[in-house]
């Protein structure tokens, strides 16, 4: 836990909350990740990775909507984290969000867990 840092975008439809757990950063998403909000999310997420934050959990439990624009950012992040020998774990997907990942063939290339605590533990290993 600790230096929890609330980071609300200018765009009201996506909210990112960040929390550090030792080496792991937890990013909790709320709202919509679509072509309107994906760009801000991309800059923020890839910026974290560029700064060496390569043990990341993205929690989707408050995220209600994702489109291919959001999936694109997740894929880019996963590739960069892999190159940096880090770990990305996704957690808490609602059923309809998970279905989009499944249709996209993303469940076979990404680490997806139900619970956030388990995801934080997995990202730290």
């Amino acid at each position: 836990m600790n230096d929890a840092n609330l980071n609300e975008n200018n765009d009201r439809s996506l909210i990112m909350m960040k929390e550090t757990h030792g080496e792991v950063m937890l990013i909790s998403l709320a709202g919509k990740l679509d072509s309107m909000t994906a760009q801000t999310f991309e800059q923020d997420l890839l910026g974290q990775i560029a700064q060496g934050r390569v043990r990341l959990v993205i929690d989707f439990s408050q995220l209600n909507y994702i489109s291919s624009a959001g999936l694109r950012v997740i894929l880019m992040a996963a590739k960069r984290i892999k190159v940096a020998s880090g770990k990305l774990v996704l957690s808490g997907m609602q059923t309809h969000i998970r279905e989009v990942f499944e249709i996209s063939g993303f469940l076979t290339i990404l680490n997806v867990l139900d619970g956030t605590n388990a995801a934080i533990a997995a990202a730290g290993q």
């Binding site: 291919s68 694109r72 063939g105």
Partner: peptide, 15 residues
């Protein structure tokens, strides 16, 4: 779209 390549080769687009 590419639904099967490994992560490092996965192309995005067409989803």
């Amino acid at each position: 779209p590419d639904l099967e390549s490994a992560l490092e080769d996965r192309a995005i687009g067409g989803l």
